[in-house]
Amino acid sequence: MKGSQAIINRLNQQLTLELSSMDQYLAHSKLYQDWGINKLHQQLSHEYEEELEHAQKLIDRILFLEGTADTASRVAINVGDTVEQMLKNDLQAEYKVAESLRSIITFCEQQQDYVTRNLLQELLNDTETDHIYWLEQHLGLIERIGIANYIQSQMSATK
Rank of each mutant, 00 (worst) to 15 (best):
Met1Pro: 09
Lys2Met: 12
Ser4Cys: 06
Ile8Tyr: 05
Gln13Val: 04
Gln13Leu: 07
Thr16Val: 13
Glu18Phe: 02
Ser20Glu: 01
Asp23Phe: 13
Gln24Ile: 11
Tyr25Asn: 05
Tyr25Leu: 09
Ala27Phe: 09
Ala27Tyr: 04
Lys30His: 12
Leu31Lys: 11
Leu31Val: 14
Gln33Ala: 12
Asp34Ser: 14
Asp34Ala: 12
Trp35Pro: 09
Gly36Arg: 05
Gly36Tyr: 06
Ile37Glu: 08
Ile37Ser: 10
Asn38Gly: 00
Leu40Thr: 09
His41Pro: 04
His41Asn: 13
His41Gly: 02
Gln43Leu: 15
Leu44Tyr: 09
Ser45Asp: 13
Ser45Pro: 00
His46Val: 06
Glu47Tyr: 15
Tyr48Ile: 07
Tyr48Lys: 11
Tyr48Cys: 06
Glu49Gln: 14
Glu49Cys: 03
Glu51Pro: 09
Leu52Pro: 00
His54Arg: 08
Ala55Gln: 05
Ile59His: 01
Ile59Gln: 03
Ile59Asp: 02
Arg61Trp: 04
Ile62Val: 11
Phe64Val: 13
Phe64Thr: 14
Leu65Asn: 02
Thr68Phe: 10
Thr71Cys: 13
Thr71Glu: 06
Ala72Trp: 08
Ser73Gln: 07
Ser73Arg: 09
Arg74Glu: 04
Val75Thr: 12
Ala76Trp: 00
Ala76Met: 12
Ala76Ile: 08
Ile77Asp: 04
Ile77Thr: 14
Ile77Asn: 04
Asn78Ile: 01
Asn78Thr: 13
Gly80Trp: 04
Asp81Asn: 13
Thr82Gly: 02
Glu84Trp: 00
Glu84Val: 03
Met86Leu: 08
Leu87Ser: 02
Leu87Gly: 04
Leu87Gln: 01
Lys88Ser: 07
Lys88Gln: 15
Asp90Thr: 08
Leu91Arg: 11
Ala93Ser: 12
Ala93Ile: 06
Ala93Tyr: 03
Glu94Lys: 06
Glu94Tyr: 10
Val97Leu: 10
Ala98His: 03
Glu99Gln: 14
Glu99Ser: 13
Ser100Gln: 07
Ser100Thr: 11
Ser100Ala: 10
Ser100Trp: 02
Ser103Ala: 10
Ser103Tyr: 06
Ile104Pro: 01
Ile104Cys: 02
Ile105Glu: 04
Thr106Glu: 14
Phe107Gln: 06
Cys108Thr: 07
Cys108Glu: 02
Glu109Gly: 10
Gln110Ser: 07
Gln112His: 14
Gln112Phe: 09
Gln112Thr: 11
Gln112Ser: 14
Asp113Ser: 03
Val115Cys: 00
Val115Thr: 14
Asn118Thr: 10
Asn118Ile: 00
Asn118Asp: 15
Leu119Asp: 05
Gln121Lys: 14
Glu122Phe: 09
Leu123Tyr: 05
Leu124Tyr: 05
Asp126Ser: 13
Thr127Trp: 05
Glu128Ser: 02
Glu128Tyr: 01
Thr129Lys: 12
Thr129Cys: 01
Thr129Pro: 00
Asp130Gly: 09
Glu136Ile: 02
Glu136Val: 08
Gln137His: 15
Gln137Arg: 12
His138Ala: 00
Glu143Arg: 15
Arg144Gly: 08
Arg144Thr: 10
Arg144Glu: 15
Gly146Val: 07
Ile147Lys: 06
Ala148Lys: 14
Ala148Ile: 13
Asn149Asp: 15
Ile151Arg: 03
Gln152Trp: 03
Gln154Asn: 10
Met155Lys: 14
Ala157Cys: 11
Thr158Trp: 08
Lys159Gly: 03
